[in-house]
Amino acid sequence: MKNIANFLFEVGMLKRTPRTGFQFLGSGAQSVAEHSFRTAMIGYALAQLDGQADVARVLQLCLFHDIPEARTGDLNYVNKKYVQVDEQKAVEDLARELPFGEDYRATLVEFIARESYEAQLAHDADQLEMVLSLKEHKDLGNRYADEWYPFSRLRLKTEIAKELAETIWETDSSKWWFDEDHQWWVNGRSGK
């Protein structure tokens, strides 16, 4: 049980591990845990929409995909040009400590290989999380989001993810809560 407690503390470290790409975007901040949570929700939605994928497997791949960053930190695309990180060692070191270490290792191997359809959906979920973040920043006036979007879009592999990316980019990020019921926003009661 001690190793499980340590694992859960390690996963908690992702709440305090920043995603580093936002420094280049010039606005925003996000932890790896925040990113992983929304990635999992996106993965779930993609797998449900697809109808053929193993939903539980996609969720597991999404939830586990960035756990090594508790040990390595998050490296953005600029960092990766210059810094070599031994993510495999981070995976192996944690896997040795867990009673489900082989499952953890296999999950990361599958995610990295991108050979299974579920891994492709999980990778697309990872990229769509960035697309959502970019759209939120674009809607708040960050002009660089428009420059970043095409690269995120080109990383998508599945047709369902490509379609969702286009819809995201065309949708105002605040309209989900700010509806047409003007009376509500005036006096807190529906005019309908």
Rank of each mutant, 00 (worst) to 15 (best):
I4F: 08
L108V: 02
G141P: 12
R19P: 00
K80V: 07
H182F: 14
D50I: 00
S36N: 08
S36G: 08
D139V: 00
K89Y: 05
K162C: 05
E69T: 04
R38Y: 14
L94Y: 01
V83P: 14
A106T: 04
L121E: 01
R105I: 10
W185D: 03
E92P: 07
Q60E: 15
T167N: 11
V55N: 08
S31P: 03
A113S: 14
M130H: 01
M130S: 04
L164R: 06
R153A: 07
E118H: 12
Q23M: 06
D181M: 03
L98E: 15
L140S: 10
Y117R: 06
D124N: 08
E92D: 15
W185F: 09
L121K: 03
E129W: 04
R105P: 07
G43C: 05
I67P: 13
D50N: 05
M41F: 00
G101N: 07
K135C: 10
S133L: 02
A56F: 04
R143G: 10
K80I: 07
R105Q: 14
R38L: 14
S133E: 05
K138F: 15
Y149M: 09
N187Q: 14
E170Y: 03
Q183M: 12
T171L: 01
L108Y: 12
R114G: 06
E10L: 12
M41T: 00
N142G: 03
H182G: 10
T72P: 12
A33T: 10
L61G: 14
Q88T: 13
T167K: 11
F151G: 01
V85M: 06
A145R: 01
N3R: 14
K2D: 04
V58R: 00
K175M: 10
A161H: 10
R155I: 01
L59S: 06
R71K: 11
G101E: 05
A70E: 13
E159R: 09
N3S: 15
L14Q: 11
Y144D: 13
S174L: 11
D74S: 02
R189C: 02
